[in-house]
C-alpha cells in the first residue's frame, strides 16, 4: 500500500514537473512576445531615424540601419547607394554617396555594414526652432512642478488636517471635476485666456495647470496617515500651522512628493491639446506642439520625423532608465489609492 502510494506520488510529481515546465516555457514565450510588442515601436523609431531616405524604402526592411560600402584603391571604405542588382550577371550598379558616376561592380565588391546617420538628428534639429521648443517645455515644466507642489500641499493640508465649512462637499466637487474630459472645457478656457490676454504666453501654459486635483488627492491621503499626537506636540511647542506643514509634514512625505513631481513632469511634458490651442508662435510653443507642426510640414521625410520624435522623448526615456523604480512605484501606488 505504501509502495503504490509513493509510486503514485512519484508519477504525479513527474507529470506535475512536465506540466510546470511547459507552463514555464509558455510564460517566457508570452513575456518575450510582450517585450517585442512594447519595444519594436521604439526600436523602429530609432532605427528609422538613423537611416537614409533610400534605405527606408528598401524591402525587406532593415532592423539595423545599414549602408553599402566599396573599398577604394587606398584601402578606405566609401559609401555607395545601390541603384540596381543583376542576379544573373552577379553584378551591382552603384552610385557613390559622395557623388560621381555610376559604376558596375561584381557582387562581392560591395559590403553591407551598419551605418548610423546621426546627421539626421542635426538636420531635423535645424529645420525647426527645436532648441526654443525644448527650452519652453523645460521652463514650463519646472514652474508647473514648483507651483503644483506649493498649491497642492497647502490645499491637501487643509483638507487633511483642518475643519472648515464645506470641506467634504468641496472635496467631492474636486474629485468629480477630475472626471471631466478636457475637450469639455477647452473652448471656454480659450476664451478665458483671450480675455486675460494670455494667449501665447508662458502663464497660459503654467497657471491653469497649478490646480492639480490628483496631487491634492494623493497628498491628502498621505497627510491623513500622520498621527495627530505629532501635531498636538508641535502646537504646544508654539509651532504655527504653516511651520508644522513645512517642518514636519513635508519632510515626512518625501515619497508622495516624489510621486507628485513625477506625475506632474510626465503630464506637463506630454500635454498637447492645451498648448496646441493656447499658443500660436514659436516663442512659447512647447516641444510636443512643435513636433506636431514639424510632422505636418515634414510629412514624407520619415527619417527626420523619427529623429525629431526621438529627441523629443529622449529626456523622458533617459529619466525613466535612471529612475524607473521610483517612477513605477509612485505611479502604481498612486493608482492604487484612487
Amino acid at each position: 500500500m505504501e509502495q503504490t502510494s509513493s509510486l503514485h506520488d512519484r508519477e504525479m510529481n513527474a507529470a506535475y514537473r512536465v506540466r510546470r515546465g511547459l507552463g514555464r516555457g509558455g510564460v517566457y514565450a508570452g513575456l518575450i512576445i510582450g517585450v517585442i510588442l512594447m519595444i519594436v515601436p521604439f526600436w523602429w523609431m530609432i532605427a528609422t531615424s538613423l537611416k537614409s531616405p533610400i534605405e527606408i524604402l528598401e524591402f525587406p526592411p532593415t532592423w539595423v540601419p545599414t549602408g553599402q560600402f566599396v573599398q577604394t584603391d587606398t584601402g578606405e571604405w566609401d559609401e555607395v547607394y545601390v541603384v540596381s542588382r543583376d542576379a544573373d550577371a552577379g553584378s551591382v550598379t552603384v552610385r557613390p554617396a559622395a557623388g560621381g558616376d555610376q559604376q558596375i561592380l561584381p557582387e562581392g565588391a560591395v559590403q553591407s555594414r551598419a551605418r548610423l546617420r546621426f546627421s539626421n538628428y542635426v538636420e531635423a534639429w535645424n529645420q525647426a526652432p527645436f532648441a526654443r521648443y525644448y527650452f519652453n517645455t523645460i521652463f514650463v515644466t519646472i514652474f508647473v512642478v514648483i507651483g503644483v507642489l506649493i498649491t497642492s500641499s497647502l490645499a491637501a493640508y487643509a483638507f487633511a488636517r483642518m475643519r472648515f465649512w464645506g470641506r467634504d462637499n468641496i472635496f467631492l466637487v474636486f474629485l468629480s471635476m477630475m472626471m471631466v474630459p478636457q475637450p469639455v472645457y477647452i473652448v471656454p478656457s480659450y476664451i478665458v485666456l483671450v480675455k486675460l490676454g494670455w494667449i501665447d504666453t508662458y502663464q497660459a501654459l503654467i497657471i491653469p495647470w497649478l490646480a492639480h486635483i490628483f496631487s491634492i488627492f494623493l497628498l491628502r491621503q498621505h497627510f491623513k496617515t500622520i498621527p495627530n499626537d505629532l501635531y498636538d506636540a508641535a502646537i504646544i511647542d508654539g509651532c504655527s500651522r504653516f511651520s508644522f506643514l513645512w517642518r514636519i509634514i513635508l519632510p515626512l512625505s518625501k515619497a508622495t512628493l516624489v510621486a507628485v513631481v513625477i506625475f506632474t513632469i510626465v503630464g506637463t511634458w506630454n500635454s498637447f491639446l492645451w498648448p496646441l490651442v493656447m499658443t500660436n508662435t514659436p516663442e512659447v510653443r512647447p516641444l510636443q506642439v512643435g513636433l506636431a507642426r514639424f510632422s505636418q510640414e515634414q510629412g514624407t521625410s520619415h527619417e527626420l520625423m523619427m529623429a525629431a520624435a526621438a529627441f523629443s522623448v529622449a529626456p523622458l526615456i533617459v529619466a525613466y532608465f535612471f529612475l524607473q523604480k521610483q517612477i513605477i512605484q509612485s505611479l502604481a501606488t498612486s493608482g492604487m489609492k484612487s
Partner: peptide, 13 residues
C-alpha cells in the same frame, strides 16, 4: 521596465 516604458511616453510620439 520594458512593459512600463511606453506609459511614460506621450501619445503624440
Amino acid at each position: 521596465s520594458a512593459f512600463f516604458l511606453p506609459y511614460v511616453l506621450d501619445m503624440l510620439v
